[in-house]
């Protein structure tokens, strides 16, 4: 018996059915290079100020020597009061937005029914439109309606957040466990009962968790909405930048950083306990 122990022929080379595949990396390379050439040549970096160096130096100096007197002076226009106001805008805006988002989420969530695709598709488009509408433009529009101040900020946050919360909520509904709903149906429950006894308790923790997550983002946006006049810490920030009061900018930046870090940590702890 002659057993062959060495290979006499090399294995056949793999045949590419599609000859383009071998060269696809080259096409990608050319494409990416093209995009970057377009991007770099399209921008002109001519607007550079000669004072950039000295301005950065004074900014760093201001950041290192913040204006501690601004932290609290009892006028209601100090750092602590305005940070609390910023948090109030974010909290109220997120809460209202969470309430409005629930019907939007049920609209956009894909169900099992045949016609559901049209309904959920239209809901998803509406949510995308809301998400893309710039928040500061919303703020400016609401300032026209209710005047400058934190009320306009609350309205802007509540409407803008629907875009993201509605999307997250609808995905939670699509991925939820249907067991509890089926149990109520098989026990003879009608649809309001199914909704109250099964749907709501099943998705509530996720809804709350997403709302807390959105609150973290709302705190960030509430702190910049003031730049267009919609209340909160953004207003003194933009004034301080425009008047080159860098030690004032320093203390406000510090305040925002501390506020965001605290809120993020708190919200993360709460979310961990929820799910």
């Amino acid at each position: 018996m002659n057993m062959q122990t060495t290979m006499t022929n090399k294995p056949e080379k793999p045949v590419h059915l599609n000859p383009w595949r071998r060269w696809s990396w080259l096409i990608w390379l050319v494409l990416v290079a093209g995009v970057y050439t377009w991007a770099i040549t399209g921008l002109h970096f001519t607007g550079l100020q000669e004072s950039a160096g000295s301005v950065s130096k004074s900014i760093v100096h201001g950041l290192v020597n913040p204006d501690w007197a601004y932290v609290y002076n009892g006028s209601g226009e100090d750092l602590v009061s305005l940070i609390i106001q910023t948090l109030a805008i974010a909290l109220l805006g997120t809460f209202v937005s969470a309430l409005i988002s629930v019907p939007f989420a049920f609209w956009a969530a894909r169900g099992e029914h045949e016609w559901g695709h049209l309904r959920s598709g239209s809901g998803k488009i509406v949510l995308t439109l809301i998400r893309t509408f710039p928040e500061i433009v919303l703020a400016i529009m609401f300032i026209k309606a209710v005047g400058p101040g934190s009320y306009a900020g609350v309205l802007a946050v509540s409407i803008h957040s629907i875009g993201m919360l509605g999307k997250l909520f609808s995905e939670a509904i699509e991925n939820m466990d249907r067991g509890a709903e089926e149990a109520i149906v098989s026990a003879g429950g009608n649809s309001p009962q199914v909704f109250m006894l099964a749907t709501i308790p099943t998705i509530m923790p996720e809804f709350i968790s997403y709302t807390l997550y959105r609150f973290e983002i709302a705190v960030r946006s509430a702190s910049i909405l003031g730049m267009v006049g919609a209340g909160g810490i953004g207003t003194p920030m933009i004034f301080a930048i425009q008047t080159r009061a860098w030690s004032r900018v320093g203390i406000i930046l510090l305040g925002i950083v501390v506020m965001v870090l605290l809120i993020d940590t708190l919200s993360e702890q709460l979310r961990k306990r929820l799910i």
């Binding site: 910049i224 953004g234 925002i256």
Partner: peptide, 28 residues
């Protein structure tokens, strides 16, 4: 990294416009 992530984008933009002047450099 956590500290960098706390800063909202428009706030950074306001500061960089003050440093680099009005234009796309500050945006980039």
């Amino acid at each position: 990294l956590d500290l960098v992530r706390t800063l909202p984008d428009l706030l950074l933009a306001a500061i960089f416009v003050a440093i680099f002047g009005i234009g796309s450099t500050a945006g980039v």
